[in-house]
Computed example of a mutant assay.
Amino acid sequence: MKAVILAAGYGTRLQKDIQKDQTGRFEHLQDVAKPLLPVGGCVLISHWLRALTQTACVDQVFVVTNALYHEAFQLWAQEFPSVQVLNDGTRSNEERLGAVACLQLAVNHFAVHDDVIVIGGDTLFKEDFSLRKFTQRFAELQRKSEDGNLVLSYQCKDEETSKYGILEVDSDFRVQCMKEKPLPAETHSRSACPCFYLFSRTTLPLLDVFLKEKETRPLEERDAPGNFLSWLITRRPVYVHEISGRFDVGNLASYTECDRYFREQLQNPDVYLI
Rank of each mutant, 00 (worst) to 15 (best):
K16C: 02
Q22I: 15
K212E: 10
L44S: 03
V43G: 00
N66G: 03
L211P: 08
R13H: 13
D115I: 12
D17G: 05
Q155A: 09
K157D: 11
F196A: 05
P194V: 08
L49H: 04
I119L: 06
F26N: 09
A72F: 00
S189V: 12
C57N: 07
Q15A: 07
Y255H: 13
L141S: 09
L206C: 05
R25N: 15
R263I: 06
E221D: 13
R132H: 12
T203G: 03
G226C: 06
L68K: 14
T65W: 02
V63Y: 01
T135W: 11
Q78C: 04
T203Q: 04
C258M: 12
F62P: 03
Q54E: 10
K2N: 13
T187C: 00
Y164T: 12
F196L: 15
E215H: 08
L152E: 04
V112Q: 03
F173A: 11
R91S: 11
G40M: 09
H113R: 15
L103V: 14
L6I: 15
Y154G: 01
N251G: 13
L36C: 04
F196Y: 11
S189A: 12
F110H: 11
A8H: 13
P194E: 06
I45S: 00
L252T: 15
K214F: 01
E213N: 05
P205R: 10
C102H: 02
R246F: 00
E186D: 13
I166D: 01
D122M: 09
V39C: 03
A224G: 00
T202P: 06
S230H: 07
S82T: 13
G120R: 02
L204M: 10
V238N: 00
D223R: 12
V118A: 01
L219V: 15
D270C: 03
N66F: 00
L273A: 02
K16L: 09
E127V: 00
E257G: 06
V249M: 06
K20H: 10
Y255W: 14
